[in-house]
């Protein structure tokens, strides 16, 4: 059963836990990507703990929303989120990138139930998402397709081919969320291959575009609900994020694109994240809207409630 978090405080705590998991996984794996995953904790929390309809124990559930990952190198944030969401035990996250682990260096449909598409090669996800959205529409289904993308992969021609396609077929059951963190491997996106004005480009290509602070749960929720209400066009949510978010010495630095922390760095990162966690707890306690006395109150909705929520959406 899906775990739904409604309270802002619980969402923030979840994003914080996911960041800690990312650091723990990467230091153990000794290779992998730090910056992108850390920047995406709120986006993934919002999608998996609020927005999307799915059952982690029944990954073939016919009516599930489809999550298509395009920038597969951010696997750590997806794995951390999926384990917290109940797809697999948390103990397995330490297998990241190791021989025989379900948690392949880049997410694999062959290895991990719940993964809809194998990724790693950039600029493929949106095409796959378009295909799923078309199939859903052909079969008159109400499930939606969520495509997570990066900014760097907008250098790829194939990305723009699928942007054209989605608009042509008016795929309003498709919403793409871009990690606009302004970095890629070799440098800042605007130095490597300038993309701006990116929102205007999408608009010119026939998309509905919403630009949000990718760390603001309220804004993410409003954007996703706006997307659900948009008819006749696909929606692009540009999530403006800080790469490396939550770990001060990683923030904004492209050098952390594809590097794991050392042991000492991971310790420092985990300490920072623990301090941040204490602050979230204190802040929300003062406001009086805390729940569960510092523990995550994961509300387990029953099937009926979830179905009701899904029906309200469409």
């Amino acid at each position: 059963m899906k775990i739904t978090l409604e309270n802002e405080r619980d969402l923030k705590l979840m994003a914080n836990s996911i960041r800690s998991d990312i650091m723990e996984m990467l230091v153990e794996a000794k290779s992998g990507h730090s910056a992108g995953p850390l920047g995406l904790a709120e986006v993934y929390t919002e999608l998996f703990f609020r927005e999307m309809n799915y059952d982690p124990k029944n990954t073939h559930l016919e009516g599930r929303d489809r999550f298509v990952l395009s920038n597969g190198h951010v696997a750590p944030v997806l794995y951390a989120t999926m384990s917290r969401a109940g797809f697999f035990p948390k103990s397995e996250i330490m297998g990241l990138r190791k021989l025989g682990s379900k948690l392949q260096g880049h997410p694999s449909k062959k290895w991990l139930p719940g993964i809809e598409n194998s990724s790693g090669p950039l600029g493929q996800g949106l095409s796959i998402a378009c295909g799923m959205a078309l199939a859903g529409r052909l079969d008159k289904k109400t499930w939606r397709v969520y495509c997570a993308m990066s900014d760097g992969e907008h250098d790829e021609g194939a990305t723009w081919e699928s942007i054209l396609f989605a608009a042509k077929y008016k795929l309003d059951n498709l919403v793409a969320i871009m990690d606009r963190n302004f970095i890629q491997i070799d440098g800042k996106t605007e130095d490597i291959m300038p993309l701006e004005p990116l929102g205007k480009k999408y608009e010119a290509f026939g998309w509905h575009v919403i630009s949000v602070d990718g760390h603001d749960f309220g804004a993410l929720r409003r954007a996703l609900s706006d997307a659900r209400g948009t008819k006749g066009k696909p929606t692009m949510i540009i999530a403006n994020t800080v790469p490396g978010k939550g770990v001060s010495f990683m923030e904004h630095l492209y050098e952390w694109h594809g590097k794991p922390p050392s042991k000492e760095q991971a310790q420092a990162a985990l300490l920072e994240l623990a301090n941040e966690r204490a602050k979230i707890e204190a802040r929300t306690d003062a406001k009086g809207n805390a729940s569960g006395g510092g523990k995550e109150a994961a509300a387990h909705l029953d099937a009926g409630a979830r179905k009701g929520a899904a029906a309200k959406k469409s």
Partner: peptide, 8 residues
């Protein structure tokens, strides 16, 4: 190539 896995 190792830990990056099959795609790489």
């Amino acid at each position: 190539v190792g830990p990056d896995g099959a795609t790489h």
